[in-house]
Nucleic acid binder design. Structure first.
Length: 425
RNA sequence: GUGGGCGUAGCUCAGGUGGUUAGAGCGCCAGGUUGUGGCCCUGGAGGUCGCCGGUUCAAGUCCGGUCGCUCACCCCA
């Protein structure tokens, strides 16, 4: 009987685990540099936690089932509802703004394709309790900085940013979309990049209550840059302030060092229903892959899953698409670093000494390996080499009799004698 | 859920029009080498050719189904 992993689930052999660890380490280290604290929650949650805020359709893509206690449960498809619940439960005692991050394993039940499996690890960073746009800038900055830490700069990736508040004002005041049709308009606009102008125009007419002229007006608006919008609507009583806020946002990001990484893109809407303000997605510049990262402001979600009202902004960055991009650029390690020392014995007589030397070096924090069975010296050196050991300690009868060992640097082959007292203490 | 492509060794892949005992490179193990790795040489292990059925004297090869992988769509973390 043989088995293989379930569809969409991955085995992490040491080579793959090393790559994954490389990503997660960069995420943690970047989180630390920005002053975020790590948290985690349960991988299994009540189904209602997701149905409540996203609608019944999402159940189709959830990894859900009924447990033995008759509870409808789901493997978490995203972290934000869990975060909202956790924060909501203790919101009154937590110092604000809350700066938290997590690296949960998330699950979805859907057919796999490039960049989308049934399971992935996703870095989540959120600021809760601060409505000011500076929180939005901080969150996007930490996302971009993690990519820089992994070797991806502004020539490799770009953050496309938008603000639903601006889009809403433009659509309702200048085009005349009614508030209840906004969601449908967002959905159509979100597809513009994939489906093209003609199909989007059709969708807008079908679903957003617009006539052909109105749909064309929307498409014209979506082609404008932020400075064009300023020229045309900067003085508009309702639209102007939204444009101003975005300019401020770009200014903050520039101060933080990310001016080259960000661009305004009014077609970025994001699929999740709970976003209320800025939204962004980070893409590879070549445009070969799906979004590496997506996020935005969700000021109403906490109220929906707790009795607390707090504004929040955050993002999720998955390991799958990012891993593909880094692999394409040869930016992923393929093997873990080898041991600091590999101890070789010439005869079996030295093996007790070998164990004492290993114990001593390990006690000092070094990583040490050796052949588990006495084999030929050449074979021991082969093993040391295969494991990527940096130094080999050779224990032979002649040297041991003189109270020394030979230490060989594997990169250069250079050897020197070291007193056993130094290795055995 | 819909459609296309692909399933041969641990990995990457060869195996015209069906024909005897299914191969290569890499990797792994052993030896050449009982005081020194990488390079080289020799040998070895490892396959129900994804699975089931059909056609045929004969199927890795043709046909059907199924499972899996993959790409795209739907949708989107």
């Amino acid at each position: 009987m043989t088995f293989q992993s379930l569809p969409g689930f991955r085995d992490f052999y040491p080579a793959e685990f090393t790559a994954r660890h490389h990503l997660v380490s960069a995420w943690r280290e970047t989180s630390r540099r920005y002053g975020f604290e790590e948290y985690d929650g349960p991988p299994l949650e009540p189904l209602e936690l997701y149905v409540e805020k996203s609608g019944d359709e999402i159940v189709e893509q959830l990894y859900n089932f009924v447990d033995k206690g008759g509870r409808a449960v789901a493997l978490r498809p995203e972290m934000t509802p869990t975060l909202a619940r956790m924060v909501g439960a203790r919101a009154r005692s937590l110092p604000k703004p809350i700066r938290w991050f997590s690296v949960p394993q998330l699950f979805r039940y859907e057919r796999t394709q490039r960049g989308r499996l049934r399971e992935h690890f996703q870095w989540n960073v959120d600021v809760v309790g601060e409505a000011d746009i500076s929180a939005d800038a901080e969150v996007l900055a930490v996302a971009l900085d993690s990519l820089a830490a992994l070797g991806l700069n502004s020539a490799d990736v770009v953050a496309r940013v938008n603000d639903r508040r601006l889009l809403e004002r433009l659509l309702t005041t200048t085009v005349g979309v009614t508030p209840e049709r906004l969601g449908a308009a967002y959905a159509a606009i979100d597809k513009l990049g994939r489906e093209g102008a003609d199909r989007t125009r059709e969708r807008l007419v079908e679903s957003s209550g617009l006539d052909r002229g109105g749909a064309d007006l929307v498409l014209d608006l979506l082609a404008l840059g932020l400075d064009d919008l300023s020229t045309e609507y900067g003085a508009h009583e309702l639209v102007g302030p939204e444009i101003e806020r975005l300019w401020h946002y770009f200014g903050l990001l520039s101060d933080l060092g990310w001016a080259e990484h960000v661009t305004f893109d009014p077609t970025i809407v994001r699929g999740l229903a709970y976003y209320t303000g800025t939204v962004f997605e980070i893409f590879d510049r070549a445009g070969e892959l799906r979004a590496i990262c997506g996020g935005g402001r969700y000021d109403n979600l906490l109220a929906a899953v707790s009795d607390i009202e707090l504004p929040a902004v955050g993002f999720g960055m998955g390991d799958v698409v990012l891993g593909e991009l880094l692999r394409d650029r040869s930016l992923l390690p393929t093997s873990a670093p080898g041991p600091d020392y590999f101890v070789v014995t010439i005869t079996a007589e030295e093996r007790p000494l070998m164990r004492r030397v290993a114990r001593s070096l390990r006690a000092r924090g070094h990583s040490v390996s050796y052949a588990l069975r006495q084999v030929g010296v050449g074979k021991q050196f082969k093993e040391a080499n295969n494991r990527g050991a940096r130094r080999v300690i050779v224990l032979g009868p002649d040297e041991v009799a003189r109270g020394v060992a030979v230490e060989r640097l594997m990169t250069t082959g250079e050897e020197r004698q070291v007193p056993l007292t130094e290795l055995e203490s």
